[in-house]
Amino acid sequence: MKLFSSTFSILENALNYSSLKQKVISQNIANVDTPNYKAKDVSFKSMFQQEFNSSFENYRTDKRHFRFEGSSTGNSPVVTKKNLSYSQNGNSVDIDHEMADLAANQIYYNALIERLNGKFASLQSVIKGGK
Rank of each mutant, 00 (worst) to 15 (best):
R64C: 10
H97G: 08
K81H: 12
E51S: 07
I107F: 12
V93G: 03
D94M: 13
M99K: 02
T61D: 08
I107H: 11
A103C: 08
P77T: 03
K82Q: 13
H97L: 11
E69S: 09
D62E: 15
G74W: 01
M99F: 09
V78E: 01
G74R: 01
E69C: 02
T61F: 15
D96W: 10
E57M: 05
R67P: 06
Q88K: 06
N105R: 02
F66C: 00
I95D: 12
N89R: 07
S72D: 09
H97E: 15
R60E: 01
I95H: 01
H97R: 13
N75L: 05
R60P: 00
Q106K: 07
F68H: 14
I95F: 11
A100E: 07
F66Q: 05
S55W: 13
L102W: 03
S85A: 13
N75V: 07
K81Q: 07
A103G: 03
S72N: 09
G70V: 14
V79I: 15
H65E: 15
I95W: 09
V93I: 06
N105Y: 09
T80E: 05
N105H: 12
I107P: 06
S71E: 10
I95A: 13
M99Y: 04
V93P: 09
V93M: 04
G90P: 10
G70D: 04
N75E: 08
K82L: 12
K81L: 12
N89Y: 11
E98R: 00
S55H: 12
E69T: 11
D101P: 04
N58V: 02
N53E: 13
E57Y: 03
S71F: 13
D94V: 12
F66R: 03
S92H: 15
A103K: 14
A103H: 13
E69P: 01
I107S: 09
Q106I: 01
E51L: 10
N53M: 07
S87V: 03
A100N: 14
R64N: 14
R67N: 06
N58K: 05
Q106H: 03
F68G: 07
S71N: 15
T61L: 15
S76P: 00
N75A: 09
S72R: 04
S54A: 12
V79P: 00
I107W: 12
D94C: 11
T73S: 05
A103E: 01
Q88N: 04
N91S: 05
G74K: 00
G90Y: 04
S54R: 10
P77K: 00
G70K: 06
Q106S: 02
N91V: 03
Q106V: 01
N105A: 04
F66A: 06
S54F: 14
S87A: 08
V93L: 04
A100I: 14
Y59A: 05
S54H: 08
I95N: 14
K63H: 12
